[in-house]
Design a protein around this nucleic acid. Structure first.
Lengths: 197, 197
DNA sequence: CAAAACACTTAACCTGGGTTAAAAACTATT
DNA sequence: AATAGTTTTTAACCCAGGTTAAGTGTTTTG
């Protein structure tokens, strides 16, 4: 079995922050395996079952859904040191509603749901970390809903440019438009308006 | 101390569904008190601290935020047998971002956060119920985000009319418009268009 | 009961994003 | 380097919803 390298942030999270012992940490990490998802490939599609917890070590992706008219609607992006997947499917065991597609070649560290829950029984802290993570994810989703309800395309573009300027280097414009709920043409037009000011 | 009447659904939830013993249930419910919120009064405002778990026995309300331009944006409504409040503030102990306003006179059954967590230690099932509830709330918020991203005002109006026809009797049109992210005038116009068909 | 406050509707005008289609600018592939 | 494929830009036209404002209907309250 080949040794996996775990990123600094991963180690810090479970060793320093969560305070797992060396033994607990070793046990936990021994259950991980590597996966790769090529650019434009799907990690999950609607109807799939999300049975892995996946930590992103390289690349980025987007979660999207397809509406009744066949249009893709990007819900959010995922970058290094985030966890990837469709939480609802992971937690309920039901099929995914979302698509998860790599925007760049991705490298993942994965543990199966079964292994994770088994370890959760032996390492209670792992379970409480997970519960806290679900809470934080919920807050993030709520903030996203608030943003979606409040902000005009123009402010949304500018605030994204401020918070995550690198996103425009890494993520094609069409996906950002879909995240902002407008057509690529409209985002292009909006940018033109902004540069003319 | 006066006796509080707990609604059937409340009893079913904690006795049948969750399986609390008679003693546990008695202990749990002994910590509740009643509260009233008059129509248009606020149960919570932005900046307040949400320190109560509140079960709605009568009336309905809306959670909303105010955007930079001063406009109210309704995130969701709350009816009988739902839990009321700003979960993020409850869980983090930080000030609310949301306003919670009664649409009709409301009657609530409340337990303090401190009491709830103390009981959670003695009755582990209570805690695991709560964790599951947070998960479900997260799914609901995610579905709301998906809906907000996908649906056109017209379909949103019609699907709401189908799912919860009583909402139009109980909730003023302006709040439904705000929930749908359009102006009251536009909803009025939309309804006219629909009746003309 | 009348006045005031609130809720809903209607209409005219305006604007920003959708739609369609084509061109231009990149990327990837042979 | 040439070709094909993809992504982004541009332009013209259209339309749904925003804005403003006025009018009608319905509660609430002194």
């Amino acid at each position: 079995m080949m040794t996996i390298e775990f990123p600094d942030k991963f180690v810090a999270l479970f060793r320093s922050d969560l305070g797992l012992t060396v033994e607990e940490y070793a046990l936990f990490t021994s259950h991980f395996h590597k996966e790769f998802v090529g650019k434009k490939q799907h990690y999950l599609r609607e109807g799939d079952f999300n049975t892995l917890k996946a930590y992103v070590t390289k690349g980025c992706s987007r979660n999207y859904i397809i509406d009744e008219t066949g249009k893709e609607k990007t819900l959010f992006f995922c970058f290094e040191d985030w966890w990837l997947g469709d939480i609802e499917s992971f937690l309920t065991g039901k099929p995914c509603k979302q698509y998860v597609q790599a925007i760049e070649d991705m490298e993942l560290l994965c543990i199966t749901k079964a292994d994770f829950y088994k370890l959760g029984e032996r390492i209670p802290r792992l379970m409480s970390w997970f519960n806290t993570k679900i809470q934080k994810t919920h807050f993030a989703t709520m903030h996203r809903l608030m943003e979606a309800k409040c902000s005009q395309p123009e402010e949304q573009y500018l605030s994204l440019l401020e918070k995550q300027p690198d996103i425009y280097q890494r993520v094609p414009l069409q996906y950002i438009a879909s995240y902002m709920n407008i057509e690529p043409q409209s985002l292009s037009r909006l940018r033109k308006r902004l540069t003319q000011k």
